[in-house]
Amino acid sequence: MIQQSLETAWPADLPATDDRELLAAGRALLRADATGAGRAKWPDIFPDSDQVTPAFATARFRIQAAIARRAGSPDKAVVHLVWAGIDRGGTFTDLRITDWHFTRTTSKKGAATWTPQPRT
Score class of each variant (00 low, 15 high):
residue 10 W to R: 14
residue 55 A to N: 06
residue 41 K to T: 08
residue 45 I to N: 02
residue 34 A to V: 13
residue 66 A to V: 09
residue 65 A to H: 02
residue 112 A to R: 12
residue 19 D to C: 10
residue 80 H to L: 13
residue 19 D to Q: 15
residue 100 W to F: 14
residue 16 A to R: 11
residue 83 W to I: 06
residue 32 A to I: 01
residue 23 L to Y: 01
residue 53 T to C: 12
residue 110 G to H: 10
residue 78 V to I: 12
residue 17 T to W: 01
residue 11 P to F: 10
residue 13 D to Q: 06
residue 109 K to L: 15
residue 2 I to R: 15
residue 105 T to A: 14
residue 111 A to Q: 13
residue 87 D to V: 04
residue 91 T to K: 08
residue 60 R to N: 11
residue 35 T to D: 09
residue 31 R to F: 02
residue 113 T to L: 12
residue 26 G to I: 03
residue 105 T to H: 05
residue 92 F to D: 11
residue 57 A to F: 05
residue 51 Q to L: 12
residue 8 T to C: 09
residue 69 R to L: 10
residue 73 S to D: 05
residue 38 G to T: 04
residue 115 T to R: 10
residue 74 P to C: 07
residue 60 R to D: 13
residue 99 D to E: 12
residue 52 V to L: 14
residue 78 V to Y: 07
residue 102 F to L: 02
residue 39 R to L: 08
residue 13 D to I: 05
residue 78 V to P: 02
residue 3 Q to A: 10
residue 34 A to G: 08
residue 47 P to D: 05
residue 18 D to T: 01
residue 9 A to N: 14
residue 2 I to C: 08
residue 54 P to V: 12
residue 90 G to Y: 04
residue 25 A to L: 11
residue 90 G to E: 11
residue 34 A to F: 00
residue 90 G to H: 08
residue 43 P to H: 09
residue 40 A to E: 11
residue 64 Q to K: 05
residue 101 H to K: 06
residue 89 G to N: 09
residue 44 D to L: 09
residue 92 F to Y: 15
residue 14 L to S: 12
residue 72 G to W: 08
residue 44 D to I: 00
residue 74 P to H: 04
residue 68 A to C: 12
residue 93 T to N: 13
residue 24 A to K: 01
residue 55 A to C: 01
residue 12 A to T: 07
residue 80 H to I: 12
residue 114 W to Q: 07
residue 74 P to V: 10
residue 97 I to V: 15
residue 16 A to M: 04
residue 120 T to G: 12
residue 42 W to H: 03
residue 59 A to H: 05
residue 70 R to W: 00
residue 56 F to Y: 14
residue 54 P to Q: 07
residue 22 L to G: 01
residue 54 P to H: 06
residue 99 D to V: 03
residue 89 G to I: 06
residue 101 H to T: 00
residue 52 V to C: 03
residue 34 A to L: 09
residue 53 T to W: 02
residue 109 K to M: 13
residue 5 S to Y: 13
residue 91 T to L: 09
residue 72 G to N: 03
residue 35 T to G: 11
residue 34 A to H: 10
residue 102 F to I: 00
residue 47 P to S: 05
residue 51 Q to A: 12
residue 34 A to Q: 15
residue 43 P to N: 10
residue 106 T to A: 07
residue 8 T to F: 14
residue 70 R to T: 07
residue 45 I to V: 15
residue 18 D to N: 05
residue 86 I to C: 04
residue 53 T to P: 03
residue 61 F to I: 08
residue 65 A to F: 02
residue 7 E to K: 13
residue 106 T to R: 02
residue 90 G to D: 08
residue 72 G to V: 01
residue 90 G to C: 04
residue 53 T to V: 15
residue 116 P to Y: 02
residue 28 A to I: 00
residue 5 S to G: 03
residue 103 T to R: 15
residue 2 I to S: 11
residue 79 V to M: 06
residue 68 A to N: 06
residue 25 A to S: 15
residue 90 G to Q: 06
residue 21 E to Y: 00
residue 62 R to C: 02
residue 81 L to E: 07
residue 88 R to F: 01
residue 113 T to S: 14
residue 99 D to G: 01
residue 61 F to H: 15
residue 56 F to W: 13
residue 6 L to W: 13
residue 103 T to K: 11
residue 23 L to H: 03
residue 91 T to Y: 05
residue 10 W to E: 10
residue 5 S to P: 00
residue 112 A to T: 06
residue 109 K to H: 10
residue 14 L to H: 14
residue 78 V to A: 14
residue 77 A to D: 00
residue 33 D to K: 14
residue 42 W to S: 02
residue 94 D to I: 05
residue 51 Q to W: 10
